[in-house]
Simulated assay, not measured.
Amino acid sequence: MNTFHIRLLQPSESPPMPLLLLADPSEKQVLSYFDRGECYVALLDGEIVGVSVLLQTEEQTIELMNVAVAEQCQGSGIGKKLILHALDTAKQKGFARMEVGTGNSSIGQLALYQKCGFRISAIDHDFFTRHYSEPIWENGIHCRDMIRLTAEL
């Protein structure tokens, strides 16, 4: 029987960088928000198989900066559990809204966020071409624009 739970990453633990880089291929970008946010890890039978990072961006707003699931566990519902956990955590902390940004080429992620209650709120045109030195391709699509989504809590 598999045991699954989500918990806060402890200060004594190293960041799960390989997982964080699945969601954001720039280590520089990951490090720019990791230390300022709260990192949660999803454990399956004691092994870290997922990660999320929450960062307060405004008085009533928190952003889901990173959410990733180990490749061997993708499609099993862990990503959805991490997103719902993040929404619940933010609501318990008294935030009014949660934001998330993803690439225009991230078809599966766009669907998942909307299934979890997010709505498209803005497009940051050419975000990925401005902030990433190497082009990003996903699902055969050049990732150029950041699609911003918001959930009211």
Rank of each mutant, 00 (worst) to 15 (best):
residue 3 T to K: 13
residue 116 C to M: 04
residue 77 G to D: 05
residue 71 E to C: 07
residue 26 S to R: 00
residue 46 G to L: 03
residue 70 A to W: 09
residue 115 K to N: 12
residue 38 E to L: 09
residue 65 M to N: 02
residue 100 V to C: 12
residue 29 Q to H: 13
residue 41 V to S: 09
residue 14 S to A: 13
residue 40 Y to E: 03
residue 116 C to N: 05
residue 107 I to H: 03
residue 12 S to P: 00
residue 49 V to D: 00
residue 81 K to D: 09
residue 21 L to M: 12
residue 33 Y to A: 03
residue 32 S to G: 08
residue 82 L to M: 14
residue 150 T to W: 02
residue 152 E to D: 12
residue 131 H to G: 07
residue 138 E to N: 13
residue 38 E to G: 04
residue 77 G to K: 06
residue 93 K to H: 10
residue 89 T to Y: 12
residue 144 R to I: 05
residue 14 S to Q: 12
residue 30 V to H: 00
residue 99 E to K: 11
residue 115 K to M: 03
residue 99 E to R: 08
residue 88 D to E: 13
residue 34 F to R: 05
residue 33 Y to F: 10
residue 102 T to N: 07
residue 143 C to A: 15
residue 114 Q to L: 08
residue 142 H to E: 11
residue 71 E to F: 08
residue 103 G to I: 06
residue 86 A to K: 06
residue 36 R to N: 14
residue 63 E to W: 04
residue 61 T to V: 14
residue 70 A to S: 15
residue 79 G to N: 02
residue 142 H to F: 11
residue 101 G to C: 08
residue 141 I to D: 07
residue 130 R to I: 06
residue 107 I to Y: 03
residue 127 F to I: 04
residue 99 E to F: 09
residue 54 L to Y: 07
residue 46 G to K: 09
residue 118 F to R: 03
residue 26 S to H: 01
residue 68 A to L: 01
residue 66 N to G: 07
residue 86 A to S: 15
residue 72 Q to T: 10
residue 142 H to Q: 13
residue 43 L to R: 11
residue 101 G to S: 06
residue 19 L to R: 01
residue 124 D to I: 10
residue 53 V to E: 03
residue 143 C to P: 10
residue 137 W to V: 15
residue 107 I to Q: 05
residue 112 L to P: 03
residue 9 L to P: 03
residue 81 K to V: 04
residue 87 L to V: 15
residue 152 E to L: 15
residue 5 H to M: 02
residue 97 R to G: 06
residue 41 V to F: 04
residue 19 L to V: 04
residue 102 T to R: 01
residue 151 A to Q: 13
residue 81 K to R: 15
residue 67 V to E: 03
residue 45 D to H: 05
residue 133 S to F: 06
residue 15 P to I: 00
residue 69 V to K: 09
